[in-house]
Nucleic acid binder design. Structure first.
Length: 861
RNA sequence: GCGGGCGUGGCGGAACUGGUAGACGCAGCGGACUCAAAAUCCGCCGUCCUCACGGAUAUGUCGGUUCGAGUCCGACCGCCCGCACCA
């Protein structure tokens, strides 16, 4: 390093010294604090805020590095950028920590926040920390309570008894969205069904709007929109009343296939159907069957394999199109009470489930839809139902119609026919989406601002008395909700009549907290209202939201509902929270196990060899380690790399650069030691190149370098806008290679200086600290973080001459170089004049010549 | 079962609306510098044939459309994700 080979030695770039220095410079200049009244065009970029679990992980690094690229880029492009950060701070882990370690959930949470804030700050993110919020802060949840009361007032909140998902490990209720494969999304415990009185947000009132508006979310991944569409699950059908024979009772069924009504063989009702309950009163064997259904119904996820079971009630109903036709009524284990009406008519020929059931109980089947190309006389169904379209058969007045026409014919007829003063049937739009149960039997959440009075019932807490704060001192020495056992906190006079009453002890689902935080960020210090609607209307929707795909339904659907509910209650003028959504992939890593089968962390392993010969050994014991599958970083498999360790040894810029390179951002990225080292090498390389460019003395002509710089600039602009960071990285490497070559060739200072400046500005959103140090090394004024984006010189992007590939019969045989604006005839002439082309043609003349300007020439012989 | 996505070198990946397949990086190989190592720099790097020039072949498999297919269409194989008794 000190000899004559390198006459002007450059110190290695020292991230450890450099990074904190630039972070201080940004903070002192208050560069990232957003003035909400800034008249320039606004840009709101947001990454999903973290749960303060203790320490940040690599997934956070990736997520926040991406968001920071967008924020810094948009800032340089002249936008007034809002890029805030906060904490999704309520939730069960705090209570679990309290139980396991006897710490106060509040203290545990705030200590974690302090640690994680330091960690995020060490990443050099361009965040407006003056807007930081924590959802467990009464200054935040006070407003959430206010909105709950407003929603209640507008009829958007309901209290009712319902069968709910009960997590026996976490001792709490879960929303449908939070039950994955029959298990609690956090605990993994098998979920049970319980009958409880709960608070619900009436999200299903918005089902149609939530569905329709998905079409307008053009900057959302199609996958997520599709998932939400399926979750909302709209279907169009008919509700048909069947008259019970020998009584005045009716059983209403919902069907999307009224066209197949002549194929009916039975009626099936849910075990929870009121008719079943009434019949069971004096029929113990039916009661037994109902109880068996309940046990089976929810305990297992593998319902696929569960046998279709039924119980013949002995009741008969009259067919609505033929009153002399009687159908048996079964209680069946496959009919759900909470979808449709809890009763279906069974058409075995055209529904696989009904067919399985009919075959088991010997009910037979009548095909009524004949597929195209089948002979109606011989078309039969044995054990595979036909659920497609076709021509109606065996269906009286419907015969010969298409299924669509038959649907309309049945609906028209039954809607116009009345029985006992009401139409026999009515058209019905049905949704799968059900109301959002928000009551949680937990301490560490936002208290529901309601008081229960024996005389007045549930009474809202007056707005002036908000917030209803959580009690400070709680004990977790027993399972269940400590609020329920806190008799001092619970006791309160009724706000309406003054009599002794009890506080609601349930708290809100933490997904409520995260359903509006992005709105609160626009005005986080407002004391007397959740939001300022004028500010909301200026700053929402979020222009670019970035987070994990795991929230495709839960958080993103709840937030869309919440914005609508806030609109209804006057707290927002917009309906959609997120105009652009990006779902990034996970950070994955190899897994390692020792001979005993125990997981071993990467930090305790050394490697020998490469490729297929690569072997792993324990650093201390030298014991062989087996290399396992590449999986999501998780504590349980110990395949985690701590961001702090990486930042300490390589610096934040290296970690950020690696997280953005290689893999496309929507896909998983594999964390490897080689990859990090590659990123670290590039940091040093940029530093050397920039310093060399700053002192370059060359005189050679530099147009090629200038062109390379502006090509890279144009390409990075396009790819940052489309969040294709891996491609940005590739363009930057290409420019670095061009600069290196130009420096070697002795290109003039004018060109190398310009190229180095562009290089620094291109890396600035990704490696902001290195960029600042390099900016200073180039002798530029101020901070690169506040410098305007370089102006693209488009004239440098066009070449005077272009080289086109020449194909003969579709195979490439030569290249032809022509002026940029040569017409097809000139290109053809130039091509045919080439010696290599003449040789390949072997004296023949082409039958056809295809010239695609600027692309290719193809000669067909 | 229903719905969606994806299959490209040793690896991550690139290839815009059909137009030079393998950009860029990682790993590897060879070389320079060095007493040596590290760091750095230069060169090579899909497979097969050829000293080379060059040629053949190649984007999961088979077929089709086209002057031309990784890209479009059909069938199949494999992997991944979501929903799942939704009437």
């Amino acid at each position: 390093m000190t000899d004559s080979a390198n006459p002007t030695p450059i110190e290695r770039y020292n991230a450890k010294d450099s990074e904190p220095r630039w972070q201080r410079a940004w903070a002192e200049a208050r560069l990232f604090e957003t003035d909400i009244s800034d008249p320039r065009p606004k840009y709101y970029v947001l990454e999903m805020f973290p749960y303060p679990s203790g320490r940040i992980h690599m997934g956070h690094v990736r997520n926040y590095a991406m968001g920071d690229v967008v924020a810094r880029y948009k800032r340089a492009r002249g936008f007034s950028v809002l890029h805030p950060m906060g904490w999704d701070a309520f939730g069960l882990p705090a209570e679990n920590a309290a139980m396991e370690r006897k710490v106060n959930p509040r203290e545990w949470t705030y200590a974690n926040i302090a640690t994680m804030r330091d960690q995020l700050q060490s990443m050099g993110l361009s965040l407006d920390w003056s807007r930081e919020i924590a959802t467990c802060d009464p200054d935040y949840y006070k407003h959430q309570q206010r909105m709950f009361l407003d929603f209640l007032d507008k009829g958007l909140v309901a209290r009712r008894t319902a069968k709910v998902n009960w997590d026996p490990v976490d001792h709490t209720v879960l929303a449908n969205e939070q039950v994955i494969d029959g298990r609690g999304w956090r605990s993994g415990a098998l979920v049970e069904q319980r009958e409880l009185t709960q608070w619900f947000f009436r999200i299903s009132d918005f089902a149609q709007d939530l569905l329709d508006a998905l079409d307008g979310l053009e900057r959302w991944p199609e996958k997520v929109r599709l998932m939400q569409r399926n979750w909302i699950g709209r279907s169009e059908g008919l509700e048909i009343r069947f008259a019970v024979d020998g009584s005045g009772d009716k059983i209403t069924v919902y069907t999307t296939r009224p066209d197949t009504l002549f194929g009916a063989r039975f009626l099936a009702i849910s075990a929870d159907h009121p008719v079943a309950a009434a019949l069971a009163q004096d029929r113990p064997e039916l009661q037994g069957f109902i109880e068996e259904c309940r046990r089976l119904g929810t305990a297992q996820a593998a319902i696929d394999t569960a046998e279709k079971l039924g119980f013949d009630t002995g009741l008969k109903v009259r067919h609505p199109l033929d009153p002399s036709w009687l159908l048996p009524v079964y209680v069946a284990n496959f009919v759900l009470m909470d979808y449709g009406t809890g009763a279906v008519f069974g058409c075995p020929a055209h529904d696989q489930r009904d067919l399985d059931f009919a075959n088991k109980y010997g009910l037979g089947n009548t095909p009524v839809v004949c597929p195209e190309g089948q002979d109606p006389a011989t078309f039969t169904i044995t054990d595979t139902a036909y659920d497609g379209d076709g021509r109606m058969i065996n269906s009286g007045f419907l015969d010969g119609m298409s299924t669509d026409a038959a649907f309309a014919a049945v609906a028209d007829r039954l809607e116009s026919e009345t029985r006992d003063g009401a139409p026999v049937a009515r058209r019905k739009v049905q949704f799968r989406l059900r109301d959002w149960g928000v009551s949680r039997q937990r301490y560490w959440g936002c208290p529901i601002p309601i008081v229960h009075c024996d005389a007045c019932g549930p009474v809202p807490v007056p707005v002036a008395e908000l917030p209803v704060k959580l009690p400070e001192e709680v004990s977790f020495d027993q399972p269940g909700n400590p609020l329920e056992r806190d008799h001092v906190w619970r006791q309160v006079p009724c706000p309406r009549c003054g009599a002794a009453a009890r506080r609601e002890t349930d708290t809100m689902d933490t997904f409520v907290d995260s359903s509006w935080y992005y709105a609160r960020f626009t005005n986080p210090h407002l004391t007397d209202a959740p939001t300022d609607p004028a500010t909301i209307d200026r700053w929402l929707p979020v222009d670019q939201y970035i987070g994990g795909i795991e929230h495709a339904i839960l958080h993103l659907l709840y937030s869309r509902f919440f914005m609508r509910a806030m609109r209804e209650t006057g707290w927002s003028g917009v309906s959609e929270p997120f105009a652009g959504l990006f779902t990034q992939g996970m950070v994955v890593h190899e897994t390692y196990k020792d001979a005993a089968g125990a997981w071993v962390p990467p930090a305790e392993i050394r490697f020998d060899g490469t490729g297929a010969e690569r072997c792993a050994f324990h650093v201390k014991t030298d014991a062989p380690i087996s290399i396992g599958a590449i999986e999501k970083m998780s504590k349980s498999k110990k395949n985690v790399v701590d961001p702090d360790d990486i930042i300490a040894s390589y610096g934040a810029d290296t970690a950020r650069w690696f997280m953005l390179s290689d893999s496309p951002p929507e896909r998983d990225v594999i964390w490897t030691e080689e990859g990090v080292q590659g990123a670290a090498r590039f940091v040093q390389r940029v530093w050397r190149l920039v310093n060399a460019a700053a002192t370059a003395q060359g005189r050679a002509e530099g147009t090629a370098l200038r062109k390379a710089a502006h090509r890279a600039l144009a390409a990075v602009e396009e790819d940052v806008e489309r969040l294709r960071f891996n491609r940005c990285v590739a363009h930057i490497y290409t420019l670095a290679n061009a600069l290196e070559e130009a420096l070697r060739a002795g290109v003039s200072q004018e060109a190398t200086g310009e190229a180095a400046g562009i290089l620094v500005q291109l890396i600035a959103p990704m490696m902001p600290h290195l960029a600042e140090a390099s900016w200073a090394a180039l002798g530029r004024d101020g901070l690169v973080a506040s410098a305007p984006w370089p102006i693209l010189n488009r004239s440098l992007l066009v070449e005077d001459e272009i080289t086109l590939p020449v194909q003969i019969n579709g195979k490439k045989r030569a290249d032809v170089t022509v002026p940029r604006d040569a017409d097809a005839a000139a290109v053809e002439a130039a091509t045919l004049a080439l010696e290599s082309v003449q040789r390949a043609l072997e004296g023949k003349s082409p039958r056809k010549v295809i010239v695609v300007p600027g692309r290719i020439v193809n000669l067909v012989v």
